[in-house]
């Protein structure tokens, strides 16, 4: 049956169009403008002349390193906390407090995470302005996202699976590790991928905790400073009058591409799993 809409309903649908148009147009426009500046050299070469010529390889790799470091920390911690909340936390005031903390944590501005990371990791723990400090800060920022994704994925596993397992003489931990977690795996991974795409694009945190604009070498260790795409874009767009426009657009295009690839693959994967799943 074809849907038919009344006039006021069509008005509502036009609001939806209005909401979707700007982001879609933005993505399209950036990719079109970026095309002029993209070349093999731009992606695979070291920068030269303070970034005016050469490529942005260290920024791309810096962002990938950052994601690697962040996920190394946030994945075990976030999945662990999500498992605790969904499967083990007794229903009491403490759990209530935890859930409130989670919502609040998700709403803390990234610039505040930046200040926190600076105060704790850079200064107090003495990690300095470095890849390590920035990764840890981003891990803190993405923690609530991973926890929430894990918790939701576990909640969507039917309770009857848990019951069946317990009734077969499984301990609670055996039930979690052999039944519920495997069922929730794809939900957790897509949630983590989405969280990592947030980390890939975040600028305010890394600007405070260790990103550098011009470092014509690859990061050698987790304690060195690093280039990263979002920070590179920010500086190129605002602080360098001599920067050729197509290079800035190309940087924006590469960043957007990386972020969207993660988003799209997470979304497609989730839809595929949703279709395959039989419960």
């Amino acid at each position: 049956m074809r849907q038919s809409y009344t006039l006021p309903e069509l008005f509502l649908l036009s609001a939806l169009g209005l909401a979707l148009l700007p982001p879609l147009a933005a993505v399209l426009y950036i990719f079109v403008r970026a095309a002029a500046g993209i070349s093999l050299e731009f992606i695979f070469a070291m920068p030269a002349q303070r970034g005016i010529t050469g490529g942005i390889l260290p920024a791309i790799l810096g962002t990938l390193w950052l994601l690697f470091g962040t996920s190394l920390v946030v994945l075990p911690l976030g999945v662990g906390a999500g498992v605790y909340l969904a499967e083990f936390a007794p229903r009491n005031r403490l759990k209530h407090l935890l859930e409130v903390a989670l919502i609040n944590l998700a709403g803390v501005p990234s610039v505040v995470f930046g200040l926190f990371g600076y105060s704790l990791f850079v200064l107090t723990l003495g990690f300095g302005s470095s890849l390590l400090s920035a990764s840890l800060t981003l891990a803190a920022m993405t923690l609530p996202l991973v926890v929430t994704a894990t918790r939701e994925a576990l909640h969507s596993v039917p309770g009857s699976f848990r019951e069946a397992s317990l009734a077969l003489g499984a301990t609670r931990w055996q039930t979690v590790s052999t039944v519920t977690l495997p069922c929730a795996r794809s939900g957790i991974l897509t949630g983590t991928l989405l969280a990592m795409s947030r980390a890939a694009g975040d600028t305010a945190t890394i600007l405070i905790t260790g990103a550098a604009f011009f470092l014509p070498r690859l990061p050698t260790s987790f304690t060195s400073r690093f280039m990263a795409l979002p920070y590179h874009l920010y500086i190129s767009a605002t602080q360098l009058p001599g920067m050729p426009a197509e290079r800035i657009w190309a940087t924006a295009g590469v960043l957007l591409f990386i972020v969207l690839i993660m988003q799209v693959s997470a979304t497609l994967w989730r839809e595929r799993e949703r279709r395959l799943k039989k419960w």
């Binding site: 009857s160 699976f161 019951e163 077969l168 003489g169 052999t178 039944v179 069922c183």
Partner: peptide, 27 residues
């Protein structure tokens, strides 16, 4: 393990027939 239970709605795990039956012994 001594007192098994069968539920109102069939609730096999999303695993193979074999793995469903082998689940308890494997535990």
């Amino acid at each position: 393990r001594k007192v098994g239970m069968v539920f109102q709605r069939p609730n096999p795990f999303p695993k193979s027939i074999y793995e469903n039956v082998a689940y308890g012994p494997k535990l």
